[in-house]
Simulated scan of single mutants.
Amino acid sequence: MRVDRRSFIIALLITTTLPVRGWAADAPLVAITAIVEHPALDACRDGVIEGLKQQGVAAETTYESAQGQPATAAQIARSFVGMAPAVIVAISTPSAQAAASATKDIPIVFTAVTDPVGAGLVTDLARPGGNVTGLSDLSPLAQHLDLILEISPQVKTLGIPYNPGEANAVTLLRLMTGYANERGIQVVEATASKSADVVAAARSLAGQVDAIYVPTDNTIVSALESLIVVARQAKIPVFSGDTDSVARGCIGSIGFDYFQVGVQTAAIVARVLKGEKPGDLAVEVAQGTDLVLNPTAAAAFGVTIPEAVLSRAAKIVGA
Rank of each mutant, 00 (worst) to 15 (best):
226 S>L: 07
210 D>E: 09
294 N>I: 03
188 V>W: 00
158 L>V: 00
53 K>Y: 09
56 G>K: 06
250 C>D: 07
178 G>Q: 11
146 D>S: 13
257 D>Y: 03
192 A>M: 01
319 A>Y: 08
185 I>A: 07
9 I>C: 08
74 A>R: 13
186 Q>C: 01
107 P>Y: 06
138 L>M: 12
62 T>E: 01
5 R>A: 13
105 D>G: 14
314 A>L: 05
270 A>L: 01
204 S>R: 07
272 V>M: 07
120 G>K: 06
58 A>D: 12
114 T>R: 03
316 I>S: 06
169 A>L: 08
186 Q>H: 05
260 Q>Y: 10
223 A>V: 02
57 V>N: 07
309 V>D: 02
245 S>A: 09
37 E>S: 15
301 F>H: 05
130 G>L: 10
137 D>K: 04
236 I>P: 00
79 S>C: 08
88 I>H: 03
142 A>W: 03
114 T>G: 12
265 T>G: 07
249 G>R: 04
289 T>L: 10
315 K>R: 10
253 S>F: 00
28 P>I: 08
293 L>W: 02
260 Q>W: 01
192 A>C: 09
91 I>T: 04
29 L>T: 08
123 T>W: 13
208 Q>L: 12
90 A>D: 03
146 D>F: 05
110 F>S: 11
113 V>I: 13
48 V>M: 10
138 L>Y: 09
75 Q>T: 15
171 T>D: 02
60 E>R: 09
91 I>A: 05
274 K>A: 15
130 G>M: 06
242 D>N: 12
29 L>W: 01
294 N>P: 02
265 T>H: 02
